[in-house]
Design a binder for these strands. Structure first.
Length: 248
DNA sequence: CGCATGGCCCTTA
DNA sequence: TTAAGGGCCATGC
């Protein structure tokens, strides 16, 4: 056994890193209420890194981030309203470690307003990889910060709600709470209607676009595809962007 | 019109 | 390095 102060110092360091270092690299966790029930949220010095529902938070966090965890005294400012509304308003996210593709997908999902939905294919086109539809699903499935990045607003092109990191039922509940009329969407899908157009404006929208909701019945026309709407003389809405100009 | 089936892109094991 | 498979989509009966 050596008495060398350097070695004992190092040994102590291995067991207990100095507080300042730990402070810097550790994530802090809190349990907070969310629309789907209680969730556990982990934050780094850069922002919110992880939102987890159900059991097994610590293990899942370790496997995914491999960073030490400490309890937080209180939730960061703005977290609770952000979880409730999906509006971050200044709350920062720590998305380091995500691939550029994943980040682009999450950024696109954040463009979907509360109360509206967009297809997976829309995200794919939005990020410039129109055929990467399945990859979009995978990326959203690995969204580390659900609710804050509203991946639940991404639904299937055939009108089904699709899957969700917290389970499809939770996705449905969230969308209903946000005011999405799922029954109506299902009814439209049953008629193979995935776009709504107005013959007063000449614009065609996704059914949940706030512009589409104001079309009166007399002027409303449903379309199965964008091509058909265009053939009928409608141009894609600039708000919901059912067609995005994909650079060739 | 409901179902099956390739296809496609990205990530992970 | 490669191969497999996923929160999908368009097509073809």
């Amino acid at each position: 056994m050596t008495q060398d102060p350097l070695l004992t110092g190092l040994a102590a360091l291995a067991v207990e890193p100095p507080e300042s270092l730990l402070e810097r690299i550790a994530a802090r966790w809190v349990r907070v209420p969310a629309p789907i029930g209680e969730v556990t949220v982990a934050c780094t010095d850069q922002g919110v890194a992880y939102v987890h529902a159900g059991e097994g938070f610590a293990q899942a966090f370790r496997e995914r981030f491999g960073r030490p965890l400490l309890p937080a005294a209180r939730p960061p400012a703005g977290l609770l309203p952000a979880l409730r509304t999906g509006r971050l308003s200044g709350l920062r996210l720590d998305l380091r470690g995500l691939s550029p593709f994943q980040r682009a997908v999450l950024d696109a999902a954040r463009e979907i307003p509360r109360g509206e939905v967009r297809p997976y294919a829309w995200i794919a086109a939005r990020v410039g990889s129109p055929r990467a539809v399945r990859a979009v699903g995978t990326a959203l499935g690995r969204n580390p910060v659900p609710l804050l990045v509203p991946c639940h607003r991404v639904t299937r092109s055939d009108g089904m709600v699709g899957d969700y990191v917290f389970g499809a039922p939770a996705k449905e509940r969230l969308l209903l709470e946000e005011g999405v009329d799922l029954d109506r969407l299902r009814a439209l899908a049953g008629k193979r209607v995935f776009y709504l157009a107005s013959d007063t404006t000449g614009v065609v929208c996704f059914p949940t676009c706030h512009n589409a909701r104001r079309i009166t019945a007399a002027h409303r026309h449903g379309f199965r595809s964008l091509a058909q709407a265009r053939a009928a003389g409608y141009r894609p809405c600039r708000t919901c962007r059912p067609a995005q100009d994909v650079p060739a």
